Amino acid sequence: MTTVTSEPADRMSGWITLLLAFSCGLIVANIYYAQPLIGPISSDLGLPPQLAGLLVTMSQIGYGAGLLLVVPLGDLIENRKLVIITVIVGATALACAALATQPVTFLLSALLIGFGSVAVQILIPYAGHMAPEAIRGRTIGNVSTGLMLGIMLARPVASFVAAHASWHVIYAASAVAMVILAVVLRVALPPREPAARLSYGRLLGSMVELYRNTPVLRRRALYQAALFGCFSVFWTTSPLLLAGPDFQMSQSGIALFALAGVAGAIMAPVSGRIADRGWTRPATIASMVLCAAGFALTLLVPLGTPWSLTTLVIAAIAIDCGAQLSLILGYRVLFVLGAGQRSRLNGLYMTTFFVAGAAGSGIGAFAYARGGWTLAAAFGTVLPLAALAYAFTDDT
């Protein structure tokens, strides 16, 4: 007989933490495969260059919608069941993307890929529920390491596959992987039944009051919105720059560049330990400085030179580390506010900054098309600086 869990256990088994981390990475990768492939995908589908950013933006919009409409259900519906349903939705959308031959088909599939990928944001609060208070930040950081690795590795994997086969292949393979993962999670994860007994309408309605009455939620969400917007601008426009006349890189070369971002994954477990020690404010300031300095550095060296490529690698690491540090600090701050509202808090937090990420991808690609790297990088630098200015208004 399977035990239904509603309260955290005394400890969380290491292999379950590893499974959650692996699952988060595999699922979240689905919304990032398009970033390094916006050139070949838009070319194959006949999408104009000015609209190429939509290939990334649509999945982020879908992700944002799922955060708002699906993730809060983690406070209402048995968590394992909810995760499996969402993963299957993503698998179906990935299969449709693999078969797409028209822009509209791919864009609608991307929307649903993002929607199905919110399973990761059900799994992270699930990890928070299962972990004891003393190591909650560390556990969330460890699980988020998988999330970050998925984000970072998605780009080089997609580039390598596209270089040696086709962009269709990565979507088909991921569809199969999602079906297998759904089966594994069904067998391996213990159920968790939430205590809330609200209707869906009341659950969504309660989020308005939660957002209005939780100042720390609004603040952390806006911090992360600026940093994730910066992150999205960088990883949407840097493949366009590297493939352009200044660097003339192939998809394999862009894939090797994207591997630099994997270094940002080391920040997740470090961030969790920093959060558990109470160093949230100075670490938050540091995350904003990292992102702003990373982008600004790329404007100091002429494009196309070896030093320019070096600054881009440094920027990739700095921006990834800064965004990840802020993300984990926000999780830790919000997840101590109460188990009964954890999924709703997470949904509101993530929705806010993923909307910013979607806007960052779209505006960044448009800025690059209009003003090249200089305009895109200037936009990316301003976002964390705005967050820094806002952070200095916090007198708590």
Results as ranks from 00 to 15, higher is better:
G14R: 10
L383K: 12
A134V: 05
P302K: 07
L20H: 10
S252N: 15
A387W: 03
T145V: 11
L54M: 00
A196F: 05
V120Q: 05
I180S: 07
L290K: 04
A93K: 08
D320V: 10
L55P: 03
C230M: 15
P215M: 09
T305E: 01
P190W: 09
A283W: 07
N213D: 13
M267S: 11
A365D: 14
S287W: 05
T2H: 12
V355G: 08
G14T: 03
F379G: 08
N142S: 14
P215Y: 03
I122E: 12
L325I: 07
Y368R: 04
I180T: 07
A268G: 13
V187I: 14
T374Y: 03
A173G: 15
A377W: 00
I135T: 06
L82K: 04
Y33L: 06
L18M: 11
F228W: 11
Y223V: 13
L303N: 14
V176I: 14
Q224T: 02
G39T: 13
H129K: 15
T145M: 14
M1F: 11
V233H: 04
V83H: 07
T284C: 15
S232G: 04
T236G: 01
L312Y: 01
L189P: 12
L297Q: 00
A163P: 00
T298I: 02
A339G: 02
E7T: 15
V70E: 09
P48D: 06
F379Q: 09
L20P: 05
F353S: 08
I113Q: 08
V71F: 02
S238E: 08
G322P: 05
W15Y: 15
F354I: 14
C24V: 10
A387S: 07
V233F: 14
G137V: 09
V56L: 03
G338D: 03
A182R: 03
G137Q: 06
T86A: 02
M178S: 03
G340Y: 09
G146Q: 06
G261K: 12
F247Q: 13
W235S: 04
A268F: 10
P190K: 02
T237I: 09
A316Q: 11
V70N: 06
V382D: 05
A9M: 14
S144V: 04
L69S: 04
L18A: 14
E209A: 12
T145L: 14
C24F: 05
K81G: 06
Y331P: 11
I85N: 15
S13G: 09
I266M: 09
V157F: 07
A376L: 01
V216K: 01
A365C: 08
N213Y: 08
E209S: 13
G74W: 07
A110L: 12
G380L: 00
L198S: 07
A173E: 12
L181G: 01
L217P: 11
L153H: 02
Y126E: 07
I180G: 01
L20R: 04
W167C: 09
A378P: 01
P156H: 10
R80N: 01
G272M: 06
P190N: 08
I84F: 03
S238F: 06
P8G: 04
L290Q: 00
A172Q: 05
G357N: 06
S13K: 08
S238P: 07
A119H: 09
M130C: 14
T105G: 08
F115R: 02
A391E: 05
P190H: 04
P191E: 13
Q251E: 15
T2M: 15
A21W: 05
G347R: 10
T351K: 08
A177G: 00
